[in-house]
Simulated scan of single mutants.
Amino acid sequence: MRRAPLLTLLLTLGISTAEARVRLGELLPQHPWTAAAQEVVVVYSHDCGDLGDLWSAVLAAGLPVRAVNAEDYPSPAPAGVQAWTGEAATTFARQLRVGAYPTVLLVQDGRIMNAWEGTFSGRLE
């Protein structure tokens, strides 16, 4: 698997017209995983449609990926990624003020550095 540069991932995700309500610089709400120095958090729900291209782009960035399956309807994450589900996952999404699913967050030292919301239609090349 070819790793995409992180900047390419951010630029590709950044072309969305959706406006994130997630606040940059804020700490992530309480979560069940051990934080990494830099990580990607994908918050999604069952009604996002096919997220195959998004998952491929996120996984290719080479950072730890945290999947948060909100809204109480289980939806799988890619092989090797354990999705956090249930009421606590939905509470996490709401505390972030997620405006649309999926939402992708770049997190550094527990703080949100970049956020993207909406439908992924970009390609990493």
Rank of each mutant, 00 (worst) to 15 (best):
L96D: 01
L11S: 15
L106T: 01
P64G: 06
A70R: 01
V107P: 02
M1I: 10
R23F: 03
V40L: 15
G86S: 03
A89N: 00
V81K: 07
V58S: 05
E87V: 09
G80R: 09
V68T: 01
E39K: 10
Q82E: 14
A115Y: 00
L13I: 11
T90D: 12
A100F: 12
Y73A: 11
G25M: 06
L124C: 13
L96T: 00
R94M: 10
P64L: 12
L54Q: 09
A70Q: 03
L51H: 08
S75M: 08
L7M: 14
S45P: 02
T34R: 11
R123Q: 13
G80T: 08
W55R: 00
V65C: 07
L24W: 07
G118M: 11
L51M: 13
T103Q: 09
T8V: 14
A4Y: 12
A37F: 11
T12I: 13
A70T: 06
A89Q: 00
D47I: 04
S121H: 14
R23C: 09
T12L: 14
N69I: 02
G86T: 03
G14N: 06
A35L: 12
L59Y: 08
T90W: 07
R21H: 13
T103P: 05
A79K: 13
C48E: 10
L10S: 10
T90S: 15
R123T: 12
A20D: 06
L6A: 10
T91S: 10
G118Q: 05
C48D: 13
W33G: 02
R23I: 07
I112T: 05
T34S: 10
H46W: 15
T12C: 14
L27I: 07
T8W: 07
A67R: 00
A18E: 14
V58I: 13
R3M: 15
A89I: 03
V22K: 00
R3V: 15
P29W: 12
V104C: 09
V40R: 02
